[in-house]
């Protein structure tokens, strides 16, 4: 069985040159498009395609990035924004996951009863709700965290319910035939079977969290990346604005990768889909 597990890991010993060449090729394969894009962007103003005042070149943005990173402005705003996301997103998962498990697994009748309501409520555009949150909770941290929580809970909730519903019923039957208790069946089969779907929900939520974060910070805030972007635009500090835009994109990517990594760690090997 060890042999079988190791069978996939072959070609461990390559000569260094070929090894480097392979890494280089892989790098080009993965990052080539980005590099080309950046080069074109860098050259575009010189070719008169874009106005460098509105869209500065990557090198200008990078310089500004270093400056803001060194003087602490960026770190402070990142910290404030990430804190909002983390709390809102965290509470959303803490609430929606158990809710989803309960509605999907145990209280099916309740789920049927409340599902239409949840569908309707979740369809409300969160930006239209933000004024309501501000009215109710003020313009402090609470309203921003609450609105992030609000948008994040739905994907987690719905995907968890669907995940549990879609667990192969023969697996449940099988575990019942083995004399498993309801509770064992729940956490060994239903929970585990729902995991991929749950993670999809969590990743969607992370995307929504950043959407809502920036929106909320642009509408009513005096700190954070969204505020920084808007502020830079208002004072015509275009490089600073672009630093904000790029930072938000990178943060979103990093969070997504972190969740993907976590998912891989928890779920183990998976069938690759080939089309």
């Amino acid at each position: 069985m060890e042999a079988a597990a190791n069978a996939g890991r072959k070609n461990a010993s390559l000569n260094p040159v070929r090894f480097l060449a392979r890494i280089g090729l892989k790098f080009i394969h993965i990052f080539g498009a980005i590099v080309v894009f950046l080069i074109v962007w860098e050259l575009a103003p010189g070719l008169g395609i874009v106005n460098p005042v509105i869209i500065p070149t990557p090198s200008v943005i990078f310089d500004k990035f270093t400056e803001l990173a060194l003087n602490g402005v960026l770190a402070e705003n990142i910290f404030i924004s990430l804190r909002r996301v983390a709390i809102g997103f965290g509470i959303a998962i803490a609430v929606a996951l158990p809710m989803g498990f309960l509605l999907g697994g145990w209280f099916k009748t309740a789920e049927t009863a409340v599902n239409p309501l949840l569908q309707v409520v979740s369809q409300a555009n969160p930006f239209t709700l933000f004024p309501v949150f501000i009215t109710l909770l003020g313009i402090g941290e609470l309203s921003k965290i609450s609105i992030i929580f609000w948008v994040c809970q739905w994907p987690v909730l719905f995907n968890t319910v669907t995940g549990i519903r879609n667990v192969d019923p023969t697996l449940v039957k099988m575990s019942r035939s083995l004399g498993m208790s309801k509770f064992q069946m729940f956490y060994k089969v239903l929970l585990r079977g729902a995991l991929p779907s749950v993670f999809t929900g969590i990743r969607m939520s992370a995307v929504f969290a950043f959407f809502m974060l920036i929106g909320a910070e642009m509408i009513g805030a005096s700190s954070g990346l969204g505020y920084m972007i808007l502020q830079a635009q208002a004072t015509f500090q275009m490089p600073k604005m672009w630093v904000g835009i790029v930072t938000v994109a990178l943060l979103g990517m990093a969070v997504n990768l972190a969740i993907l990594y976590l998912e891989k760690r928890i779920s183990g090997r998976k069938e690759e889909i080939a089309i």
């Binding site: 192969d168 023969t170 697996l171 039957k173 099988m174 035939s177 083995l178 089969v189 585990r192 079977g193 995991l195 779920s267 183990g268 069938e271």
Partner: peptide, 12 residues
Amino acid sequence: ATVFQQYALLPW
């Protein structure tokens, strides 16, 4: 013990 037609193996 039962053997089901659809294998009923836990994919994970």
